[in-house]
Design a protein around this nucleic acid. Structure first.
Length: 546
RNA sequence: GUUCCGGUAGCUCAGCUGGAUAGAGCGACAGCCUCCGAAGCUGUAGGUCGAUGGUUCGAGUCCAUUCCGGAACGCCA
């Protein structure tokens, strides 16, 4: 049980002494100003109205009822009715042993109750390379997945492959154009074709393997398979390099092959969620809060893209997932209400689907905004970013921002190997610890970690502050997972690094006092474990040297 | 015209279920290496939380109106 929870429990016990019918939730917060204590509660103010007494009076009664304990050093009451708790920081010494015993499991919890969660993200069409928007999605989705896993959710990472729709026909046409162009024909790429360089490379490969045969012979089927296979393989490879691994690659085409699409339509019709108008079949999404009804079968008999999407989400539910999380680009916000409506029509609960929208990334280089152009195929690819900047800064930079914020990516900044670049601050802390431990080992100062240390030498404010940050790790993970806020973890990393650097600057680890040296080394082991684990959660490498 | 997102320090961004004197990093300025990695540490300056009105004991946070920036409004995907 962490300290926050302990205090909450103590307050709840005190509350039971009060003449109340219902007991309100006890909120514990960490005051901005440390002179207001380590934790505080506003419970007295919340009760003021119910009890019809002044908050300060209520606070006094409450404080008097708080049981004896070893956690709280002293309590003070402050206007207009806060109760501030100053914790005896020596209790934080326990955290070291906890961390050493748990290792990389420290911070894990059962919050998620093994709930089966499907996180779908990236899901880029196999029609080109991944660009910067996908990179944000990949970093955000994977970080969220790792964090939720740590918090006890049973997470599946899923990539939906749009290999059946119109865009694939477009891909085939584009490959065909590039193929002919390289064999000397003067054909031009249509406006809505795929202009990326990777399509040219595909055409080249086809020529290497098959020469001119598709000038006379129909190449459509071959182009489709060849294109999708190669582009998908490239996506997968780039994502793996980016340290993002998907558990499931779900093909849209299989939804047609298994008749799932047709079954979905039948189900919707039978349940009375559809009607015909002007030769088309409409879905009554307005029944579930959408702005207007949507067409699912066009008057020419073909399906709109909504149909396979419904079948797909129904399939996820059928596979037993209790919570679906879609991470989409912000430009799809208009799509969310109809998708949520549809999910309810195929038997899902209203909250079964949760959509996290990622806003646009504005890319700056040399102080100017880089505009992307689909027509020219000019876009910053994930591959470019990895080659030029490296995985660590990109992943960290994306993980630093809350999902739903518009963000700016300054390439010059990300490229800088300096303290302007926040990822180095954290990695440097880790490398510094590693360095100290190496030095200690050279001097044969490798303490056995399972000795029953009392940590009496750990007294200074800097040390106790560092321990307090370590102790806060589990609560941070839970908050980040529950509220889907991966950036809480990068904020934590900054806090931990800051607390360590401040300690490091203030006192020597390796000193003349053998016991103090030993206990501090043991503490550093614990800091290193947590730092590495936190970095791992956002997909960043913890370096031994840099 | 409707809908969604954003507007908080010079810059990039946090700010939880409405709580105390609105925070962090970077940048600026001033200090700190006879000592385990100075990619570090310590300190200072910097704010009408886009604007107006409302609800509340209390509003960056909730409501209404409005301004600015981004995005979406198809029998395209």
């Amino acid at each position: 049980m962490h300290v926050e929870l302990t205090i909450k429990t103590l307050i709840e016990k005190a509350l039971k002494q009060m003449p109340l019918d219902t007991w309100p939730d006890v909120e514990i917060e960490v005051p901005n100003d440390s002179t207001h204590g380590d934790f505080a509660t506003n419970i007295a103010m919340k009760l003021a109205r119910v009890l019809r007494k002044a908050p300060l009076v209520i606070a006094e009664t409450l404080v008097a009822n708080i049981p004896e304990n070893s956690v709280i050093k002293h309590i003070e009451i402050a206007r207009p009715g806060f109760i501030n708790f100053h914790v005896d920081k020596r209790i934080y010494r326990d955290v070291i042993q906890k961390i050493l015993a748990a290792g990389s499991d420290y911070g894990a919890s059962t919050l998620g109750e093994a709930q089966r969660v499907n996180i779908e993200f990236v899901s880029a069409n196999p029609t080109g390379s991944l660009h910067i928007g996908h990179a944000r999605g990949a970093a955000a989705g994977d970080a969220l997945a790792r964090i939720m896993q740590k918090a006890g959710y049973d997470v599946t990472r899923e990539f939906y492959v749009n290999d059946a729709g119109n865009q694939i026909n477009q891909l085939v046409r584009s490959i065909d154009v590039r193929y002919r162009q390289q064999l000397g024909e003067s054909v031009t790429m249509p406006e809505d074709g795929y202009h990326g360089a990777e399509i040219i490379q595909l055409a080249q490969k086809i020529i290497e393997q098959h020469g001119k045969r598709f000038l006379t012979e129909a190449g459509t089927n071959y182009f489709r398979k060849f294109g999708v296979d190669h582009l998908l393989a490239a996506l997968r490879e780039d994502l793996e390099t980016f340290r993002v691994h998907f558990d499931v690659w779900f093909s849209e085409a299989t939804l047609y092959e298994s008749d799932a699409v047709k079954k979905t339509i039948d189900q919707l019709k039978t349940a009375g969620h559809t009607y015909e108008q002007e030769g088309a079949v409409w879905l009554k999404t307005t029944d579930y809060g959408d702005e207007k009804d949507r067409v699912i079968i066009k008057s020419d008999g073909s399906y709109t893209y909504l149909v396979p999407d419904i079948a797909y989400h129904a399939d996820k539910l059928a596979r037993g997932f209790e919570q679906l999380i879609d991470i989409l680009g912000g430009d799809h916000h208009g799509y969310v209400p109809r998708l949520k409506a549809a999910i309810q029509m195929v038997g899902g609960q209203e909250h079964a689907l949760e959509v996290e929208l990622l806003q646009m990334v504005k890319v700056l280089q040399n102080g100017e905004e880089l505009k992307m152009s689909k027509r020219s195929g000019k876009a910053i690819t994930l591959r470019d970013l990895i080659d030029e900047v490296g995985v660590d800064p990109i992943r960290y930079f994306f993980a630093m921002r809350s999902l739903n914020t518009h963000m700016e990516l300054d390439l010059d900044l990300a490229l800088k190997e300096s303290n302007e670049n926040p990822v180095f601050y954290a990695q440097y802390a880790h490398a510094r610890i590693a360095s100290i431990l190496r030095n200690a080992a050279e001097k044969s100062l490798s303490p056995s970690l399972d000795k029953p240390y009392q940590f009496e030498t750990l007294q200074s404010d800097k040390v106790l502050e560092l321990l307090a940050v370590l102790a806060d790790y589990p609560a941070t993970i839970e908050r980040a997972a529950q509220k889907r806020l991966p950036h809480k973890v990068t904020q934590y990393i900054q806090r931990l690094a800051q607390a360590f650097h401040a300690f490091y600057a203030a006192e020597m680890v390796l000193s003349d006092d053998p016991l103090a040296t030993e206990e501090r080394l043991v503490m550093l082991h614990a800091v290193k474990i947590v730092m590495q684990d936190a970095l791992e959660l956002v997909g960043v490498e913890a370096k031994e040297r840099m």
